[in-house]
C-alpha cells in the first residue's frame, strides 16, 4: 500500500489536524481529543490510498478517531468563560452538554465546523435527512434550555 511522501502528508495534516481537533470536541473530552486526532492521522498515513478514494476524507477520519477512543465519562465541554468569549452566552455550554450525543455532534459538525449536512451524515453514518432532524431538534432544544437558564 502506497504511503504519501512526507511533504504531501504534512500539507494534508496542516489543514486536517485543526479541523479534526474542532470536530472531536463535540464528542470527546479535551484530553481525549489529541488521541483521536493522532489515531485518525496515523490511519491516514497507513491507508493513504484508501483515504484518497473516499469522497469525504474528513468524515472518514472522524469515524476512525471515534472508533479508536472511548468517552467513558459524561462529556464536559470547556466553559465559555474559560475561553473568554463575551459574545457567547454562558448558558450555551450546559445546553450543548445536555443534548443527546447525536444531536450535539450534528449541531457541532454543521454549525460549529461548517460541514454540509451530507458531510456530517457520512461522518455519523446516518442519512442526510436524519442529520437535518438532529440539527433542527438540537438547535431548538438549545434555545429552550438557554432561555430557561437565562430567565431563571
Amino acid at each position: 500500500m502506497a504511503k504519501p511522501d512526507r511533504e504531501e502528508f504534512e500539507h494534508f495534516v496542516s489543514s486536517a489536524e485543526p479541523a479534526l481537533r474542532r470536530a472531536f470536541v463535540s464528542c470527546r473530552s479535551l484530553d481525549l481529543v489529541p488521541d483521536a486526532v493522532s489515531a485518525s492521522l496515523a490511519w491516514a498515513w497507513e491507508h493513504w490510498d484508501e483515504l484518497a478514494a473516499t469522497e469525504n476524507p474528513m468524515g472518514y477520519l472522524f469515524r476512525v478517531g471515534q472508533s479508536a477512543t472511548r468517552q467513558r465519562q459524561p462529556l464536559r465541554l470547556p466553559p465559555a468563560e474559560e475561553i473568554s468569549l463575551p459574545e457567547v452566552e454562558p448558558a450555551l455550554v450546559p445546553a450543548l452538554e445536555k443534548l443527546p450525543e447525536r444531536q450535539r455532534v450534528a449541531v457541532w459538525l454543521v454549525h460549529g465546523c461548517g460541514w454540509t449536512h451530507r458531510e456530517a451524515a457520512e461522518a455519523m453514518e446516518i442519512s442526510t435527512s436524519a442529520v437535518s432532524t438532529h440539527v433542527a431538534r438540537g438547535i431548538a432544544a438549545v434555545r429552550v434550555t438557554m432561555k430557561v437558564n437565562t430567565d431563571a
Binding site: 493522532s38 492521522l41 470547556p78 457567547v88 460549529g112 461548517g114
Partner: peptide, 26 residues
C-alpha cells in the same frame, strides 16, 4: 444560537493541545 455555536466551537478547538508529534506515529 447557530453563530454562537460556531464561535464557541472554533475557540474550543483551539483549546485542545495539538498532538506533540502528529505523524507518522501510530
Amino acid at each position: 444560537v447557530e453563530e454562537q455555536v460556531a464561535r464557541y466551537a472554533e475557540a474550543a478547538g483551539e483549546l485542545v493541545r495539538a498532538p506533540a508529534v502528529i505523524a507518522p506515529i501510530r
